[in-house]
Amino acid sequence: MKIVVCVKQVPDSDAALAVNADRTWIVDSGINFELNPYDRYALEEALRIKEAGEGEVVAVSLGPARAAQVLKTCLATGADRAIHLKDEAFQGGDPWANAQALAAAIRTVEPDLVLCGFQANDDTLAQTPVLLAEMLGMPHATGAMKIEKTDTGVRVARELEADRREVVDLPLPAVITVQTGINEPRYASIKGIMAAKRKEMKTPGPADLGIDPSQVGAAGSRLRFFDLAVPPKKEGGEVLTGSTEEIAVALVKRIRENTGVL
């Protein structure tokens, strides 16, 4: 089975973030980046599916030059080759424009399965994989907690609210987004790290993929961030005192007055 894993480089969870001068994104210099944690699970799932049978895992990422680091991590962890959409024309896009570019790159691979993380830790939009599925003309399932191969395709257990799961069957090729906790991602071994530099990493531009540069990146975007701000610090809470009964009465009063829930 040929599996594409879409991965994104996102700011490290511990990075101290600041809003940039024109309030459109964060200041991305001077902070560390990492492989989007959700994508680690998608990669692990792809490697396990490959190891259970045979095939190839191709890691694909759209992002600036620095994003090559996360693709190298994928190669070190076991992916067979990588495609890096680092051309300037691809950058600064919204989910629709990014899905356009990713779809063009993924078509060149002709995969049986496309795995993505459920969402990216930076903008948490969770839209790109679903848009991607539409553009590729593939069925999709989101939030997978279990993926099993069947005679006709794959069976996916999707995570719903309150510990409930929905099981769906999909024909292949398909796009599936993977939830954290579906597996335990492995570490890259030292041999894997050493082998990574000998693996292929292609960097096609729009012309190589036969796409119009005006349809991707900032030029092709329909969505714009125009006022990013750090949320104001919450005011200190109120501590209710008294007997349990008094506290309960006071709590209900406040919920009624302040929220209208009761």
Binding site: K72, Y187, I190, I193, K197
Partner: peptide, 14 residues
């Protein structure tokens, strides 16, 4: 270098 940094990161995570 890139490999050394990747190794450092892997071992740090481990």
């Amino acid at each position: 270098n890139d490999e050394q940094e990747m190794l450092r990161q892997m071992v740090a995570d481990f």
